[in-house]
Computed example of a mutant assay.
Amino acid sequence: MVACRIPAGRGSGRCRNRGEPRETGFSAGSVRTWLGVAKAAGAVGLLLGLAVLAVGAAAAVGLVLYFAGAVVDVLRARAYAHVAFPLVYAAPVVASLALTG
């Protein structure tokens, strides 16, 4: 449930353009909205994965790729102090992926 809660909360904040630093990463409004939708869809997929294991595994893989891209984005922006944040958010998702496989 923790693995679902983190992307869902962060995804909804990104869709409303709140709670995210605007000076690093994707700051365009439409891109931020789509990234929020992707994060929220991953959270819904993890919840559905409680019933259908393959859906949960696919959602977890998608979220792991999303957070890996976030790490690359932070490194490209040279905001090294912020690298830990996507890793912390990805940890429960990686744990849920490890438990499904």
Results as ranks from 00 to 15, higher is better:
Ala95Met: 09
Gly29Cys: 11
Ala3Arg: 08
Val72Asn: 02
Cys15Trp: 13
Ser30Leu: 12
Ala60Lys: 00
Ala40Thr: 10
Val31Arg: 10
Ala79Thr: 01
Thr100Ile: 12
Ala40Phe: 15
Val44Phe: 02
Ala40Gln: 09
Arg18Asn: 13
Ala58His: 05
Phe67Trp: 13
Ser12Pro: 01
Val52Cys: 09
Arg18Phe: 15
Gly56Asn: 01
Ser96His: 08
Leu99Pro: 04
Leu63Asp: 03
Ala70Tyr: 03
Ala68Asp: 08
Val31Asn: 04
Val71His: 01
Val64Arg: 09
Asn17Arg: 11
Arg18Thr: 13
Gly29Asp: 13
Ser27Lys: 07
Leu63Trp: 01
Ala43Gln: 02
Ala28Cys: 13
Ala79Asn: 05
Ala51Glu: 15
Ala95Asn: 04
Pro7Gly: 04
Gly45Thr: 00
Leu99Val: 03
Lys39Asp: 08
Tyr89Trp: 14
Val64Ile: 14
Leu46Phe: 09
Arg5Met: 14
Arg16Trp: 15
Tyr66Trp: 12
Arg78Phe: 11
Arg76Phe: 06
Ala3Gln: 10
Trp34Gln: 06
Glu20Val: 11
Ala98Pro: 03
Ala51Ile: 10
Arg22Thr: 12
Pro92Gln: 01
Val31Ser: 09
Tyr80Leu: 12
Leu35Trp: 04
Leu65Gly: 12
Ser96Asp: 13
Val44Asp: 06
Ala98Arg: 03
Gly101Glu: 12
Gly19Val: 01
Ala60Pro: 02
Leu35Arg: 03
His82Ile: 04
Leu75Thr: 00
Ala8Asn: 02
Phe85Arg: 11
